[in-house]
Amino acid sequence: MTPLDARLLSAHDRGDVAALVALYTEAADQSQSDDAAGFYLTHAMVFALDLGLDVARDLRARLVDMGREHPE
């Protein structure tokens, strides 16, 4: 398990949704494949939407650029 994986699991255990947004974004940025990046960005966006964070728009835009979300 990587240190990032451990931090993600810890944030899940604590229910720290704000940390999950940041950690899933970090995981996407470090991903070695588009599939992994898309997975992590989707999670980050869902958690950001849950909190009503403006960063959800940026995350969605990244997913649109990757072809994993449809533009409005």
Rank of each mutant, 00 (worst) to 15 (best):
A11H: 09
H43N: 14
V64W: 00
A37K: 13
T25R: 07
L9F: 06
R68Q: 13
L4A: 00
L63V: 05
F47E: 04
D50W: 05
A36M: 12
A61E: 09
L9Q: 15
L9V: 05
G38C: 12
S31N: 08
R7G: 06
H12S: 08
P3S: 12
T2N: 07
Y24I: 02
D34T: 14
L63D: 06
L41M: 11
L9K: 14
L63E: 02
A22P: 01
V46N: 13
G52R: 10
F39K: 08
M45D: 00
Q30N: 10
H43V: 00
T25F: 06
A6K: 12
D5I: 06
S33I: 05
M45P: 02
L63I: 05
D54L: 07
R68F: 00
V55H: 04
P3W: 06
L41K: 02
Y24Q: 09
D58Q: 12
G15F: 06
D13P: 03
G67P: 03
A27N: 01
A18L: 11
G38L: 07
T25W: 00
A27L: 07
A48L: 03
D35M: 13
D16R: 12
A28V: 00
S31Q: 07
D29W: 03
E26Y: 02
D16A: 15
A48K: 05
T2G: 04
Q30K: 10
T2L: 02
R62Y: 05
G15A: 01
A28M: 00
R57W: 01
R14Q: 14
Q30E: 13
G52V: 12
R62D: 13
H12R: 15
D5T: 12
A37S: 14
G38I: 09
H43F: 09
R57K: 04
D29S: 09
H70M: 04
S33L: 09
Y40S: 12
L4V: 01
R68C: 01
A11W: 06
G67Y: 02
Y24V: 00
V64D: 01
P71E: 10
R60K: 10
R62K: 15
R57A: 02
H12C: 10
R57V: 00
D54P: 11
L63H: 03
G52S: 09
E26M: 06
A36G: 11
L9C: 04
A6H: 07
E69V: 03
R14A: 15
R7F: 04
F47R: 02
H70E: 07
A48Y: 01
H43T: 03
D58V: 04
R68E: 01
L41Y: 08
A27S: 10
G52W: 05
